[in-house]
Design a protein around this nucleic acid. Sequence first.
RNA 1: CGAUGCGGUGGCCUUAUCGCCCUGUAGUAGUUAAUCACUAUUGGGAGGAAAGUCCGGACACCAAAGUGCAGCAUAGCGGGUAACGCCCGUCAUCCUGACGUUCAUCGUCAGGAGAGGACAAGUGCAACAGAAAGCAAGUACAGGUAAGGCUGUAGUGAAAUCAGGUAAACUCUAUGUGGUGAAACGCCAUGUAAGCCAGUGUUUGAGGGUAGCACGCCCGAGUUGGUGGGUAGGCGGAUAGAACUUAUGGGCAACCAUGGGUCCAGAUAAAUGAUAAGGGCCUGUAUUACAUAUACGGGUUACAGAAUCCGGCUUAUAAACCGCUUCUUGAG
Length: 122
Amino acid sequence: MSFSFSKQEKLKSRKTIELLFQKGNSITQYPLKLYYLPVDKDQEVRVKAAVSVPKRNFKRAADRNRIKRLLREAYRLNKHLIFNNIEGNFAFLILYLGKDLPPYDEVEKSMQGVFKKLVNKF
RNA sequence: CGAUGCGGUGGCCUUAUCGCCCUGUAGUAGUUAAUCACUAUUGGGAGGAAAGUCCGGACACCAAAGUGCAGCAUAGCGGGUAACGCCCGUCAUCCUGACGUUCAUCGUCAGGAGAGGACAAGUGCAACAGAAAGCAAGUACAGGUAAGGCUGUAGUGAAAUCAGGUAAACUCUAUGUGGUGAAACGCCAUGUAAGCCAGUGUUUGAGGGUAGCACGCCCGAGUUGGUGGGUAGGCGGAUAGAACUUAUGGGCAACCAUGGGUCCAGAUAAAUGAUAAGGGCCUGUAUUACAUAUACGGGUUACAGAAUCCGGCUUAUAAACCGCUUCUUGAG
């Protein structure tokens, strides 16, 4: 298991993302919210993931970029927690609900918390 | 010397590990087509404002891009530029100081400001003072008449029947200006299809396109409804340019010419990040001769993230550095 986060692992399909918001389930571990949806189709990787920060909470693009980078970093380093403990293929979308710029270790803790909750559901 | 304010310069560096995007090379795998994905490796990877989207262009399409009106913009003169509402120079005019002769005036020098066409077309607006302020109305005193502000003087004011002032007031004049905006646009693929049914129409023309409006113009054999059937996105545009840098020459300058050198982001649910160490910088405490040095600890920051590309303008901005202004002359 590598710590990479390559193109294949990124959720890029506009349609899947819309479906995720409409039909997906979610887990909240403030300040993170994880949408997840089982995917029937065969795909190259077990989980495709995307991150998002609402423009409403952060007006400046530099801040949104910063948080998205932290989210991706935390996902990349902790995804083994779920890869080793669940079955099936999924689409993920991780949303940042907080209103302040977080430090990295806080983001990592929250990410681990969300993953634990998810694993407990299965 | 310090503090405040304003303007300008400035916009942290190095190494290691784990990652991301693009590119070249080699290899591997695979989907419904295409793009492509993965592994190894070479090279590259945010800004001075990338921002606001306010002007000017390139480029693209809108029917061939036409006429008039409306709208919008600009406003001494000259130059620069692809172009501009930008930049440079300069003059009128105004302000400050010094000198010539004294207060004014005038002249010279130095510094600063300098949106400046027209109020002799029309409309509007105007503090204080004043009886009255722009179709007029008439105060006090004196003169005069049949009778009247009919005449003179006084007084207020920048201005009182006078070509008053004001256009970053409407307006007028001159000049310029078609619109949209990379979600443009071109191409490949595609189930908003094909097929079937009904209405309507084929030059005596259904229907449609065309800039804010009108004129004018153009396309035109299909079109409208029902039935049917549930998918899938991708490529180009798009990064070698009004480019950057350097030397020489021209010009007061903005800038231009010629020669040499360089290749410097290209994503698309959208790359440039995380961690650690060191240096630099800032800062707290302690010791010391409040200069400085040493030790230990903390911080690493401001404004802010390319999205078709250029030229401007405007606005935001931490530390440090440079200049100017101000400070019951704050301290020596």
